[in-house]
């Protein structure tokens, strides 16, 4: 059996055993799920009851950016950590930044870029009161970036490349500045001023959206994007 072959999916005795164990596990989990009492968690009423004070109308956004903003802050940090991990194991970008141009993709990209930016911004704004928010908006912008890389519109000598690293950290920076700034002013970490909590939440979310979008594109590329001068010598992939 060669190493590169796909898995042999035949049901060997060992797999039968694993399958039986899994059936038992699922049975146990199902029993546990069925035994959950209704309304054991009272967080729902707390979260919904204090919506007025949170500055936003969408309870999920209130949890993410107000009640538990520390979690969301660390979540943005996890994105960055994953990217640092990828950059540590794969120094060179795996998806070549320069790929064959295709007119269909480029035209599609040019038509959809403004639409995707507008819908990303709309999702971000909408997150305050309805379904939406920084992660959804960041995902739309990330998809735009992936299309952009695929269509070779993002050339390494672009001014955009120099903005990549600042854009990656702007989300965490905004979180730290707002959260830490409140501490310096005598409040708690992430205690927003009551009257304009929404402004601060939107500010942090905007910065986070930019970071999330760029990080997703960088995850897709799978390595450090090459410099303009690095790129000249090595157009082929000699990994």
């Amino acid at each position: 059996m060669s190493d590169n072959s796909y898995d042999d999916v035949r049901l060997t005795p060992a797999r039968r055993f694993v399958l039986a164990m899994m059936a038992l596990l699922v049975g146990g989990l199902a029993a546990a799920v069925l035994s959950i009492e209704e309304e054991v968690i009272e967080l729902r009423d707390l979260a919904l009851g204090n919506l007025e004070a949170s500055g936003v109308g969408n309870p999920v956004t209130a949890v993410l950016l107000n009640y538990r903003s520390y979690d969301t802050f660390l979540e943005v940090a996890v994105l960055l950590l994953a990217l640092i991990g990828i950059w540590a194991v794969a120094k060179k970008a795996r998806i070549p930044i320069k790929s064959p141009n295709t007119p269909v993709l480029i035209t599609f990209e040019r038509l959809f870029m403004p639409l995707m930016i507008v819908s990303g911004g709309y999702l971000l704004w909408l997150g305050a009161d309805r379904t939406g928010g920084a992660f959804q908006a960041g995902a739309v912008l990330g998809a735009l970036g992936v299309l952009w890389v695929a269509a070779s519109l993002w050339t390494p000598n672009d001014r955009l490349r120099r903005l990549t690293r600042p854009a990656l950290v702007v989300g965490m920076a905004a979180f730290l500045l707002v959260g830490g700034g409140m501490m310096l002013l005598g409040g708690d970490f992430f205690e927003y001023p009551r009257e304009d909590a929404k402004t601060w939440i939107l500010l942090i979310e905007t910065a986070a959206t930019i970071s999330i979008g760029i990080t997703l594109v960088m995850l897709f590329i799978g390595g450090i994007p090459p410099n303009a001068d690095q790129n000249k010598g090595e157009s082929g992939d000699h990994d």
């Binding site: 967080l43 979260a47 309870p59 949890v63 996890v78 994105l79 994953a82 992660f135 995850l219």
Partner: peptide
């Protein structure tokens, strides 16, 4: 309940990473 929703969106992001 919005709290599990917030946990799940956090989980999705961590899963993607």
């Amino acid at each position: 309940d919005p709290v599990p929703h917030a946990l799940v969106i956090t989980g999705i992001v961590v899963a993607v990473c």
